[in-house]
């Protein structure tokens, strides 16, 4: 009887409603993120094609607009091959770890004022924690394939990700000091109080360190050593095919979007416009969902920056990657913490 009373009580109904709302929010965020991943691949091929004076995908649909759907269908129906001596459970689980760790990071990102799946006080640390878990997916995929190229790719990835995680964490400390909070919503609101409405101006050193280490964390060119195709075939996912390969691909793109979101939230003012622009055109604030559009516009600029870098810069040598991380980025980030701390005390 007690259980029945509990179910009929007000408290249970509220809890039930909360859970339903959270599930709807998760569905919306994951759905929109997946759509973005699909068209991020299309946009990448298109924009890199244009930069290299090619057309990019043109065949499927108008200007290749249906290409991502065709690619997805193809990957779903491809044969799933598992190497004979692979460590099967680990081989199955590693693409899932990558997908999980990147998708979960989306849950703490505030997309516009008041819209975030989980408004937690340690949002920034949560994303750092999840990106360090993603390294397992790469390392274990390389090891469990029982093949030399994936193994080398996995080893490279683990060393690279550990090194650049330090630089990325330290670069965000400047933002934490200025905002006085680890809650991503509070960080955005703290930036609105600043004259330019963005931390990228006072934290320019940190922003540079963050952008470079975000490229390295997501294994994008010029830091794509773990999947350097002319040395390692395809790096850590060489032995994966079909839907498991697709999971790696999705995880990588979601990771890229998460890092771009972090740049927008921590350095570019999130969903807000700089105060001086609002002063010139005050009516923008009354447009419905304007915050979401501003956020997305900033996000697309960041993602385009990834493509731009990829089309411009050649790949680093492995020892150069390590030297850059430990000898340049980490000292710069430490210097930035020192300067920010001193200014915070004096001001």
């Amino acid at each position: 009887m007690k259980i029945f009373e509990f179910i009929m009580s007000e408290g249970f109904f509220d809890m039930f409603l909360d859970i339903v709302i959270i599930i709807i929010k998760i569905a919306v965020v994951v759905g929109v993120a997946m759509l973005h991943v699909m068209y991020a691949t299309w946009a990448e091929r298109k924009s890199i094609g244009r930069m290299q004076v090619r057309m990019g995908p043109m065949e499927v649909g108008f200007h290749g607009l249906l290409q991502p759907i065709a690619d997805g269908v193809k990957l779903f129906f491809k044969e799933d091959i598992i190497p004979a001596n692979a460590d099967k459970p680990v081989f199955y689980v590693s693409p899932v770890i990558i997908m999980m760790s990147t998708l979960v990071s989306l849950s703490v990102i505030p997309f516009f004022d008041g819209f975030v799946v989980a408004n937690i006080n340690i949002g920034l640390l949560f994303i750092l924690a999840m990106s360090s878990i993603g390294a397992y997916g790469i390392v274990l995929a390389g090891w469990s394939s029982n093949s030399k190229y994936p193994f080398l790719g996995g080893l490279r990835a683990s060393a690279q990700v550990i090194s650049y995680e330090v630089a990325m964490g330290l670069s965000l400390v400047g933002v934490m000091i200025m905002a006085g909070s680890l809650n991503l919503q509070d960080i955005v609101k703290a930036q609105a109080a600043y004259p330019t409405g963005m931390y990228v101006v006072p934290q320019i050193i940190a922003f540079f360190v963050f952008v470079v280490s975000a490229l390295a964390e997501t294994n994008r060119t010029p830091f794509d050593m773990p999947e350097a195709e002319n040395e390692l075939v395809a790096g850590y996912f060489t032995e994966y095919s079909g839907i498991r390969f697709a999971l790696f691909f999705l995880g990588e793109y979601v990771g890229m979007i998460v890092m771009a979101c972090m740049a927008v939230v921590c350095f570019l003012g999130g969903w807000t416009l700089p105060p001086f622009i609002v002063k010139i055109v005050p009516f923008v604030e009354s447009v419905p969902f304007i915050g979401l559009f501003i956020f997305l516009a900033k996000l697309y600029v960041c993602i385009f920056f990834y493509y731009w870098i990829r089309a411009t810069v050649p790949r680093y040598r492995y020892d150069q990657v390590m030297a850059l991380g430990w000898k340049l980025l980490i000292p710069l980030a430490l210097l930035n913490i020192l300067i920010t701390g001193v200014i915070k005390i004096l001001a």
Binding site: I122, L125, F126, L128, A129, S132, I133, A135, Y136, V139, L140, W143, S158, I162, E165, G169
Partner: peptide
């Protein structure tokens, strides 16, 4: 805070070194 540090330091750094 301790929970996040537990994941970042133990799961993210020390355990990767074990691997």
């Amino acid at each position: 805070f301790i929970a996040a540090i537990q994941i970042i330091v133990y799961a993210g750094a020390i355990l990767v070194l074990y691997v």
